[in-house]
Amino acid sequence: MVVFALALFLPAGTLTWLTGWIFFMLFFGFVLAVTVWLFKHNPALLRERMRMGTLDQQGWDKLLFPLVNALFFAWLLLMSFDAGRFHWSPVPIWLQVGGGIVLVCSFLLFFLTFRENAYLSPVVRIQQERGHAVISTGPYHYVRHPMYAAILIFVVGTSLLLGSWYGLLFGMAPMILLARRAILEERTLREHLHGYTDYIAHVQYRLIPYVW
């Protein structure tokens, strides 16, 4: 939280950035709530998500995953400079309010994904020791990667809430990498996870229903 706060408010050059504080409290309030929920209802998934990497993580993911994280960090810094300090691309207040609503909607989709998928590892690997199986219920009934769909909604909501059109534009860079990761992840799952090929045949869309 301290590192996140420094990345948010140091580039902004002020601690009186209201929307920055709203985002900070909403984000970490949600992180805390999900962590407590996982601790109570699915501690195995909580342990999985707290692992810092495994030997069976796909080789390409060992390169792609840190790059995606670095781009998201750069995205946060850019929005802090833009909306907090220089006001390069101001967003109307009503759209910032709408962004906050979109952000909360992304939290809902995140939670539904966590609730449905007990194998939601942050890295791409086949969790044989945990009995890895195909999930096709909840949001997985509509898209194959609801976590990535939630991240897309999160990017839009955060950019609008903080008040940065540049953030909305630059936020598409890590999303493009996530889209590529989704394709590579599916290749791994088709090869190594029983039933995933049949799942793809029934659920046609990766992130956005009727689009892609």
Rank of each mutant, 00 (worst) to 15 (best):
H202E: 12
G171N: 06
P139G: 09
A201F: 01
V91M: 07
L95V: 09
S136Q: 10
P174W: 02
Q204R: 15
A83R: 01
R130E: 10
R190I: 14
H145L: 04
L169S: 11
I153H: 04
T158R: 07
R144W: 03
L152F: 13
I151L: 12
Y119A: 03
P209T: 06
F114D: 02
R180H: 13
V143L: 05
M175I: 14
Y199K: 06
P146E: 00
L207E: 00
Y166S: 04
R144P: 00
F110W: 09
L95T: 07
S159R: 04
P122T: 09
R85G: 05
A133Q: 15
T158V: 10
L178G: 01
F111E: 04
G163L: 06
F111S: 07
I101D: 08
Y205Q: 03
V211W: 14
P146G: 05
W88I: 13
V134C: 00
S164I: 02
R125D: 08
V143H: 01
I135V: 15
F111G: 04
A133T: 11
W94I: 14
H132W: 12
T188S: 15
G138W: 02
P92D: 13
A149S: 15
E186P: 02
H132D: 10
A182G: 10
P209E: 12
S164K: 05
S121R: 11
F111R: 08
G84Q: 02
G157D: 04
Y199W: 10
L103A: 03
V104I: 12
H87D: 14
G171M: 03
V156D: 01
C105W: 09
R206H: 07
Q128I: 10
L193I: 07
T137Y: 06
L189P: 01
S106C: 07
G167I: 04
P92Y: 08
M147P: 03
H132G: 07
E185K: 06
T137R: 14
I183P: 00
R130T: 05
L120Y: 07
Y140W: 10
F86G: 10
R180S: 14
A150R: 00
L177W: 08
I200W: 01
G138Q: 07
L152A: 15
T113E: 05
A173L: 15
P139V: 08
Y148Q: 06
S89T: 15
L112C: 11
H141C: 12
I183T: 13
L108S: 11
E186V: 05
M175Y: 10
I135K: 08
P139Y: 02
R115E: 13
I208C: 08
P122H: 12
M172E: 12
L161A: 03
P209K: 06
Y210C: 11
A182S: 15
A201K: 13
P90V: 13
S89G: 11
Y142F: 15
G138R: 00
I151A: 09
S106N: 08
I93F: 13
L108G: 13
